[in-house]
Each structure stands twice: as C-alpha cells, then as structure tokens.
C-alpha cells in the first residue's frame, strides 16, 4: 500500500540530486506554461520522452503516468479545437500532459526519503521563524507509520459494521474509525513523551 511510485535504477537521472531534479522540473514547467504553444509542447515532449529513455523507462511507463488525464484530454481537446482552433487546443492540452509527464518522471527516478531530505534542507532557514526541521521530519515519518495502523482500524470497523448488519450506514463506519484515530494519537503522543520528545 505504501510503495511509492519510485522505480529503482542506476541511470544518470536516478543518480542526480533530488534538489536538482526538483529545480529542473520547476524551470521546465514554467517555460512550458510561459510559451504555451504547439512548438513548445513538441520541444517539451521531445525532451521529456528523451529523459524517460535516459532513465530507462519505456513508452508504456510514460503513457501510464498521464493515463489519469484521459478524460480531461478527451473532453478538452475537441472543445478547445471547436471554440479556439487546433493550435490552442494542442497548446493547452499538450502543456498539461507534458508537464504532468515531467513531474511524474521526477517521482519515478527519486527516492521518497531523498525528496523528504530536500524538504528538510529547504526548511532549514525557517528555523528563524520557529519551524524545527527535525520535528517536521518526525511528523512526516509518524504519518507514514500511521497510515497502515489507521487502515487496519478501517478494516476492523468494516467487519464490525457487517457483523451488526449496518452495511449501508457510512456513519456507523466513520465514527468508530475517527474515535480510534484519536485514541491511537493519544497513545502515540504518550509514547513520544516517554521517549523524550517534549524534553
């Protein structure tokens, strides 16, 4: 459940720093949006496709990354074509698809922990205004840890609801999950305090 979309590899793309990749993505998508023209879309697509190749990802992986956009593309393309002409249609839809493909590529080639480290580094200057990067990192780790626990309570609550014959009541499902979420948080808070978090 908690497997990220990261795909291990040893390519140049995998080995380059997470911060550099994020910065590159930011520049790339900004330029793409600034031009928003069929030519920019074509150039952007060529670049992204080349980088997918560099990372060892095939066309099938690329398609899978933008697959969630299919409904948008199907509705938007004919609509824009009809109201604003094909150039605009290609520019708008193409920009969206290429930007999403580029962002997905960074996630494919970068470990979750490396991206989280970037966040911690970016937050370092925020120490001055009272943000503690160590606590932020703890908060993120705690959440990753809590997901399977809360998912477990969901399954238990669903079974209990079935046992009581209340299958159709969403409230009979959500109330116990929320109550258990709070109880779990109370226990975790206590365990954190015992391990000296507040000291």
């Amino acid at each position: 459940m908690l497997t990220s979309t990261f795909r291990p590899g040893a390519s140049l793309l995998h080995r380059s720093g997470a911060g550099a990749k994020l910065l590159g993505l930011l520049v790339f998508s900004t330029v793409l949006v600034a031009f928003q023209s069929p030519l920019a879309v074509l150039a952007g697509f060529a670049l992204v496709a080349g980088l997918y190749g560099l990372g060892g990802f095939g066309p099938r992986t690329l398609v899978a990354q933008v697959w969630p956009l299919r409904w948008f593309v199907l509705c938007l393309l004919p609509f824009q074509w009809w109201t604003a002409g094909w150039q605009v249609a290609v520019a708008v839809v193409g920009t969206l698809v290429v930007a999403v493909a580029g962002a997905a590529l960074v996630t494919l080639a970068t470990r979750v922990t490396d991206l989280l480290d970037v966040i911690a580094r970016v937050l370092e200057p925020a120490r001055a205004v009272g943000v503690d990067p160590e606590r932020v990192a703890l908060l993120l780790a705690l959440t990753i840890r809590a997901v399977p626990v809360i998912a477990g309570t969901l399954h238990e609550a669903r079974d209990a609801r079935r046992a009581r014959g209340l299958e159709r009541s969403t409230r009979a499902l959500v109330t116990p999950i929320v109550v258990r979420t709070i109880r779990h948080a109370d226990r975790v808070g206590e365990a954190l305090a015992a391990r000296g978090i507040d000291d």
Partner: peptide, 27 residues
C-alpha cells in the same frame, strides 16, 4: 526534572503499534 528522569527510566506500553513511531525497524 522530567527530562533527566526519562533518560533513566525507559517505558514500554502494551500497544506496540503506538510506540513504534518510525516507518522501518532500524529507523
């Protein structure tokens, strides 16, 4: 001196799911 006391006294609870705060074992 709660902090000093907690360095001396370790505490184990009944629900390990609430005590393990990091995603992996070594962490």
């Amino acid at each position: 001196d709660g902090a000093g006391v907690r360095r001396k006294v370790g505490f184990v609870f009944s629900d390990p799911d609430a005590q393990i705060v990091m995603p992996t074992v070594a962490e």
